[in-house]
Amino acid sequence: MDVETAEEQGGPAPPSGAPCGPCCAGAPALGGRREPKKYAVTDDYQLSKQVLGLGVNGKVLECFHRRTGQKCALKLLYDSPKARQEVDHHWQASGGPHIVRILDVYENMHHSKRCLLIVMECMEGGELFSRIQERGDQAFTEREAAEIMRDIGTAIQFLHSRNIAHRDVKPENLLYTSKDKDAVLKLTDFGFAKETTQNALQTPCYTPYYVAPEVLGPEKYDKSCDMWSLGVIMYILLCGFPPFYSNTGQAISPGMKRRIRLGQYGFPSPEWSEVSEDAKQLIRLLLKTDPTERLTITQFMNHPWINQSMVVPQTPLHTARVLQEDRDHWDEVKVGGPSPHRPQGFGKRDCRVVTSQNLGLRPPLASCR
């Protein structure tokens, strides 16, 4: 079985608008665990060459259910304890609110190696930031940001209630079900996920821009690392650029690590001049360098900016414009490193000065080292 060859799978792909069929009915029950199917995935699904994305442990391909024509996403993982753990954690979460649903899992041979194939619902609406970038002149508001953060928080609350830390909460793992206005935002990619009931987490699994200070090591850490990532995503949603970033061309520089460990960031103008104090307060409570002082997911969901999002001001933000201006750099971030043909840093923010006024905590310091 070669999952990269579509031509051998029975002709052209069925239409993507075909109705949902038995593969949906075969999804595991909420929080369920099942054994992978041992027969060939190609008996049930027609595979395509179209790559939909790259996860932590494997790539994601487009596929179609043979009988119903339903478009799905297939993730290929070479079998290993780590891959089994990813499947197990995603299965436990599948069906939870704002979490991408697993439809089927297969254990097959691929290139003479045993592999696991996860068939998931196809998230045709694209990534969170791409959707905001594509708005053009249509304003993105603080209230919309609050509603997005509430949805992401709902997914994390479900995971944390089951003692699962996702450990890779980032915009690329937040996908919309469709291009429609009422599309649902969902969390995916459980390649770094870990249960927190046994021992404290210590393996440094992270994506640089969203990593909590304790994850940089050597300290042990727990699911509160997801709360830091929520703070970073919320910050970016409200202005368009991250609170911590490298200006050296490295994925993560010594200066960036230092700023993360010290919690050195600011709320510079003009991007932050109209953002509410409630939003800034919530970010400060999430980006606490001491994880014991950081909000829990329950406290986050009970914060007025989240649980009363309908009264959050509809202030137009700079986010869409800034994300569009920095599109090349965000593309670079997603592929995991700098390119010599792309600009480094985030536009004119490379040497922004963080002052005691906009930091709220510290004396003046330069943030461009």
Rank of each mutant, 00 (worst) to 15 (best):
T203L: 10
V215E: 02
M227P: 14
T177L: 01
W228H: 02
S178E: 05
H166A: 07
E214D: 12
K186L: 07
A193N: 10
D137P: 08
Q198S: 04
A193V: 15
E142W: 07
V119L: 09
T188K: 05
Q198T: 08
Q133I: 13
Q202Y: 12
L175H: 02
G217C: 00
K223A: 15
A193M: 11
G217W: 06
E134D: 09
A165R: 01
P208D: 07
T177I: 04
T207F: 01
E172F: 02
I148N: 11
L128H: 09
L174A: 09
R150A: 10
P208F: 02
S178R: 08
R135I: 08
E121W: 04
V169P: 06
E127M: 04
A146W: 00
G136V: 05
S112Y: 06
F192W: 15
Q133T: 14
L187P: 01
R150W: 09
I164D: 00
D189T: 00
K181N: 05
T207M: 02
V119Y: 00
R131T: 04
C225K: 06
P218W: 03
A155W: 06
G191A: 07
R162V: 08
G231S: 12
A193I: 12
K113Q: 09
L117Q: 01
T197Y: 06
M234L: 15
I132L: 13
E121K: 03
D151M: 11
Y206W: 06
V232T: 05
I164W: 00
A139S: 12
I164F: 03
H160W: 11
E121A: 10
S178N: 04
H111W: 11
D222Q: 15
K170C: 01
A165F: 01
A155E: 09
F140T: 09
C205V: 13
S224V: 07
V211H: 00
K223V: 15
L116E: 03
Q157N: 12
S112E: 10
I164M: 04
V232H: 10
T188Q: 05
L175K: 00
M149Q: 05
G153H: 13
G125R: 14
K194Y: 07
K194M: 13
E214N: 05
D151Y: 02
L185H: 12
K186H: 13
Q202M: 14
N199E: 13
V184T: 15
